[in-house]
Structure formats: structure tokens, C-alpha cells
Design a protein around this nucleic acid. Structure first.
Length: 595
RNA sequence: GGUUCCGUAGCUCAGCUGGAUAGAGCAACAGCCUUCUAAGCUGUGGGUCCCGCGUUCGAAUCGCGGCGGAAUCACCA
């Protein structure tokens, strides 16, 4: 509609003032709620053509449109704003087409689909997943769904950081203090068990450093030479050399961790198309580094460590290979990026990684470009903010890290308690109830996290996150469940929603308000895809739910005597529920039929 | 110190490429269940959009300069 109006205004200016005018001078927007009308033309930019006051110009253009454009049924001018009223017939006609559409994503489809890799999760195998990872996983998965809904070919990738000195730390601690403990023997989830030994390492290491400092060693030296750290470094060298016992232990502990991760991913409802392991890509990274050295793009120190000089790019010197010949994080990432490009020939490779690594990705891209890979421009760091607690940052040392598994089960427990308290779901089987509680608990958690702008740091307030009122996932789920309930009743009464038989006389202003919101869905999806922001969809779904709830409250649907009006409201309800369902689907949130 | 990001109600957050009187939720208070689900709806109170300057018909939005906060600048990942 906006596009048609734009053309019409353009035509009006041309006819009335005899001037050709650029498109961007014509601004059409939805009229604010407190004014009469549907669309507003901002006339200020047009004054230079009319050479007249804003009011007179508005009047003149308004009159022209009224006479030459049947969809317009009236207008008013307030200050410099020309408010156009669109006839109900036009709206109803528009809605009728929308309601008969099978695919609500159609208009959001891009004309040139791309191959896009979305890298997310990227866990370390030495720690279980926590709240921060949840944000990562939810954002990544949702981004995948949004891009795919727009028609792109999207591949979900997950690179597992399964090598490096940090892995050796938990292995070393397990060797020293583990006494052969396994997930089976301890009853612990594998990732939690390995995490336990990582913490043990840090504790022991810290104690050694402190002791050395107390004995007069300076801090840096103590950190470097503490026995635990030395042993870990030796282990890494052994591992890179492929020494069998080290390698076997590594493999064993990895299987524990992966089993643990899979369980958590499954609960969260996320998955991957292609999993990479750094243990498989770091060698390519090392080759690249050597190649770069040969081509004099990189340089070597006397201690034989290899560096990139990025001062010309406004960055620093960056280490790419240690003096002992082992790879660092950056080396691995160089390898993975090249590996992926060779495999998929992607146009974009989106990394969902926290903003603490902004610098890392700047450097990664700079090095790749220096090496001559022009596709490095397609590497996009989707940088999201930290999750903080009301008391501040999560600190593992203080035990304030919110564990992903615990959080998920707590949310479901709360869903159960609230539901029972409200006396809902009587007469359902225990399994059915569990399934509903699962959807609500997860819905609350996911929505709470996804509704905020990804790039901002966010506060995770536990008591707020389990609130099911207001701008929350369960509120939207509730709206949906309510509509479903209407349709269950309608079926009993043998009433159907018939999108082919919508009569324009049945529309009121409240209905048209809802239609206006519904029509924005494709636009929101496109915006979410280009701005990488699931939050846009979340907030849209909330607005729509709120609008519908008011509608629901104001009108009787099934009790309505007039069949045409009843049908109109039913169709409206139907479309609302479908769009809510799809919107939430893009966020990875499931909708319960009842709650 | 360099780089990046953030600063909107007591709290958590919206506010699209500049547009009319800045919006929700939570918290507080007051109402609404014989009806299609009250996890809802209605109302009241609550603002120096961090500060200043600039750009222009018009700035929470754009630019510059401050102030405040976060992250990062490791032979950690």
C-alpha cells in the first residue's frame, strides 16, 4: 500500500506542481493511533515544489488523491501531516487475500538466495554450558530459521574447541586426582564431570602460583613456571605429536563431554548440519601460517614464534604460532575459515560469538585479507552482549555461573507450579501435562533472552525470567492457546472460518487495527534477517498478542449473532494464530494448543 | 592509553532508514470472572531520552566533543 501511495503522491506532485521528484522525498508512514486516518504523508519535503504553506499543500494533494484514487475515502491535514483514510473495502479486500494465503513468508523471500553459514554454540570441551551459551545457542538457531525463511540456503555449523592447552588442563587434573572416575561411576553428566576437573586444575594451579610468589618468585614467572602449567604445556606438545596414551585419554573424555552436550542441545531444541572439530582443522591453520611466512606476509622472531604485523591496519602484532611450534586459537580459526570456504563457497559466514571477541574477529579478517582471500569480507561477526546477573557478572570462582541444565529444569518446574496454582489442565494425562510445562518453561526462557537486542548486554533476573505475565513468551503462547480454544468450541458448534466469504461490512476499526499489524509480518521478518535481530520478531509477536487480547476482550466471537461479523472475527483470529505460530517458530519457541 | 559497544520511567526493555503529545512490561494503587481460557482486560501515578554543541522546517534517532559503564588489546580460548 505504501508503495502505491508513494506513486500516487509522486503523480500528484507532478500534475499539480509540474515537478519531477525523487522517491526518497516522499515519506509515507502509518498514522499514529491518536489521529484519524490510516497513512500519513509528510508534506514538509514537498514544500519546495508547492511554494506554499504546509496546510495548503496538504489540502491540495489530499484533494487530488481523493479524486483520483478510489481506495482513499477521506483525509485531514494537521500541521504538516496529511492523514489519508483508506476505505474499509480496500482493507477488507487486502485482508481477504492475506487470509487465503498459504505461505506467510512469501513476501519476505529474497530475490537472490545466498549460501550462508551460521556458526554458533562453539563450545569448549572443558566446561558445561551456562547461561551465556544459552543466549548464543538461541540466537544462532533463531538466526538460522529467519534466514532460511527468507529463502537462503543456510548451513548450521558448530566448531568444537576440542584442542588446546585448556583441554589439557582438565585431562591433567583428571589424571592426577580422578582415580578413574567416569560419568557412569559418578552419576554425573559427562560435561559436568570434565568441568569439575577443569576447576580442580585452576584451583591447584592457583595455589602453586601463590606459593611461588610467597617464596619470592615474581608473578609472571610464577604463572609461567608453576608445575601444573608446565605439565599442561608438555601434554599439549605430546598431544600435537599424537602420543598414544595422551590421545586416548583425550578421546575418552571427549566422548563424555559430547554425550552431555547433546543432551543439552536436545533440550534446547537446537541442532547442527555440520560439526567441525578444531583438532581436525588446526593443521590446515598451521600450513597457512607457514605459507604466509614463506610469502613474507608474516614474520618470525628469534625464538621461532610466528607473528602477523597488523599495525598498518590499525591493529597490533598478533601471535600465530608459539615458539614451541604449537598452534593458538587464531591459527585454528584461520584453518577453519579456509576449510569452510573450500567446502561451501559461502557468500557469508556468520559467527555467533560474544562481543568479548570483537578484536579477535577484526584480526581474523585482517589476516585473511592480507593473505589474499577476498571472500574474507563475507566473514561476519554477529557479536552479542554478555548476560549478567542482577549482582553483576557471572563468575565461576564465586559459583555464580548459572548452569544451562539447571536453568531449563527450573523453568519447567515453575511452569508446573504456576499452572497447578491456576488450576489449569485438569483432566490431562501426566505425559500431556509434562509436554505442556516443557513448552511453557522453555518458551519463557527463550523469549526472555531473545526479546532483547542481541548486541546489548542484558541482565538476567531469575525472578523476572520466570514471570509469565506481560511481555513474556507464555503470554504469547497463552494468546495462541486461547484462539485454539475458540476454534475447538467453534468445531463443536459446527461453525467454520471461511476466508473466501469475508464481507467488508463486517469490519470495524478494531478489526482494521489488527489487520494493520498482521500485514507487517513479512516486513518484520525481512528486517530481522538483514539486521540479525530475532528481537524484532519477538517484540512484534508481543505487540500482536496484546492487540489481539484487547480485541478478544472487547468482542464476542462465537456469541456474535451476525454470521458475517462472526466469520470475519473468526478468520481474523485464525490468521493471528497462524502468524503468531510462525513468528514464534522463527524464535525456536513451540506453541502449546492448550495451557 | 588504543579499538569496539552501550547510556530512554524506580527496575527490565521497545522505539524501523530523522517526523506529530516518547511506549510496553514489572513493581505500587483502584476496578473487571454466570460468557469463546482472568497466564487476561481497564484505569491512576511515574521522563532533563547522560550532558553540550552542530546539521534543518523538525533530533531519543544523524555528526563532533565531553561524562559514565562494559568488553578487549596474552606464547588463554
Amino acid at each position: 500500500m505504501e508503495i502505491i501511495l508513494k506513486d500516487k503522491v509522486k503523480e500528484a506532485v507532478q500534475k499539480l506542481y509540474n515537478s519531477e521528484i525523487q522517491d526518497d522525498l516522499i515519506q509515507i508512514q502509518e498514522t499514529r493511533k491518536d489521529f484519524k486516518g490510516d497513512f500519513t504523508v509528510v508534506v514538509f519535503p514537498l514544500l519546495r515544489f508547492s511554494k506554499n504553506t504546509p496546510e495548503r499543500t496538504g489540502e491540495t494533494i489530499g484533494n487530488y488523491l481523493l479524486e483520483n484514487f478510489p481506495a482513499i475515502s477521506g483525509f485531514n491535514v494537521i500541521k504538516g501531516f496529511l492523514n489519508l483514510e483508506i476505505s474499509d473495502t480496500w482493507w477488507v479486500d487486502y485482508f481477504s487475500k492475506l487470509a487465503q494465503k498459504a505461505d506467510y513468508f512469501e513476501e519476505a523471500m529474497v530475490s537472490h538466495p545466498e549460501t550462508i553459514l551460521v556458526e554458533y554454540s562453539s563450545p569448549n570441551t572443558n566446561k558445561p554450558l551456562h547461561l551465556g551459551h544459552i543466549r548464543n545457542n538461541l540466537l544462532g538457531f533463531s538466526l538460522y530459521r529467519i534466514l532460511a525463511a527468507c529463502g537462503h540456503k543456510v548451513i548450521k555449523t558448530n566448531i568444537v574447541n576440542d584442542r588446546g592447552i585448556h583441554i589439557c588442563k582438565s585431562m591433567l587434573a583428571w589424571q592426577k586426582f580422578g582415580n578413574g572416575e567416569t560419568p557412569e561411576s559418578s552419576g554425573m553428566k559427562g560435561d559436568h564431570l570434565v568441568g569439575k576437573y577443569y576447576v580442580l586444575f585452576e584451583k591447584e594451579y592457583k595455589a602453586q602460583v601463590e606459593k611461588m610468589i610467597a617464596d619470592g618468585v615474581n608473578e609472571n614467572e610464577a604463572r609461567n613456571n608453576a608445575p601444573m602449567m608446565k605439565e599442561a604445556r608438555e601434554m599439549l606438545i605430546k598431544w600435537e605429536a599424537g602420543e598414544k596414551s595422551t590421545f586416548d585419554l583425550w578421546k575418552l573424555m571427549n566422548t563424555w563431554v559430547y554425550a552431555g552436550f547433546d543432551e543439552t542441545y536436545k533440550k534446547l531444541g537446537v541442532d547442527f548440519d555440520r560439526i567441525y572439530y578444531e583438532s581436525e582443522t588446526y593443521k590446515l591453520g598451521k600450513e597457512l601460517v607457514l605459507d604466509g611466512l614463506n610469502r613474507k606476509i608474516l614474520y618470525q622472531n628469534e625464538d621461532s614464534s610466528i607473528w602477523a604485523d597488523l599495525t598498518a591496519e590499525g591493529l597490533d602484532q598478533k601471535l600465530l604460532q608459539r615458539s614451541d611450534g604449537t598452534a593458538v586459537y587464531m591459527t585454528q580459526d584461520l584453518g577453519t575459515a579456509v576449510n569452510r570456504y573450500n567446502e561451501y563457497n559461502f557468500s557469508k559466514n556468520i559467527y555467533v560469538v560474544g562481543n568479548e571477541q570483537n578484536y579477535h574477529f577484526q584480526v581474523l579478517r585482517a589476516i585473511l585479507k592480507k593473505m589474499g582471500f577476498s571472500w574474507a569480507d563475507g566473514l561476519i561477526h554477529f557479536s552479542y552482549g554478555m548476560v549478567e546477573l542482577p549482582e553483576g557478572r557471572m563468575k565461576s570462582r564465586e559459583g555464580t555461573v548459572v548452569d544451562a541444565d539447571d536453568l531449563i529444569s527450573e523453568m519447567q518446574d515453575t511452569a508446573r507450579d504456576v499452572s497447578n496454582e491456576l488450576g489449569k489442565l485438569a483432566g490431562f494425562s501426566e505425559d500431556e501435562k509434562q509436554e505442556i510445562f516443557r513448552k511453557i518453561g522453555l518458551g519463557a526462557l527463550k523469549y526472555y533472552i531473545l526479546k532483547v537486542d542481541p548486541k546489548k548486554n542484558m541482565t538476567f533476573n531469575p525472578s523476572e525470567s520466570i514471570d509469565f505475565n506481560g511481555n513474556t513468551g507464555p503470554f504469547i503462547q497463552y494468546t495462541y492457546a486461547r484462539i485454539k480454544s475458540v476454534f475447538r468450541k467453534a468445531e463443536q458448534m459446527n461453525i467454520q472460518a471461511d476466508a473466501h466469504r469475508i464481507e467488508s461490512s463486517a469490519a470495524g476499526t478494531k478489526e482494521i487495527d489488527l489487520i494493520k499489524l498482521l500485514r507487517r509480518f513479512p516486513e518484520i521478518v525481512s528486517a530481522a534477517a538483514t539486521e540479525y535481530s530475532p528481537a524484532l520478531i519477538a517484540n512484534y509477536c508481543y505487540d500482536l498478542s496484546k492487540e489481539y487480547n484487547q480485541f478478544y476482550h472487547d468482542f464476542s466471537i462465537l456469541g456474535e449473532e451476525n454470521a458475517a461479523v462472526r466469520n470475519f472475527r473468526l478468520v481474523l483470529s485464525k490468521v493471528t494464530s497462524e502468524i503468531l505460530n510462525r513468528g514464534m517458530w522463527l524464535l525456536g519457541i513451540e506453541m502449546p494448543e492448550r495451557m
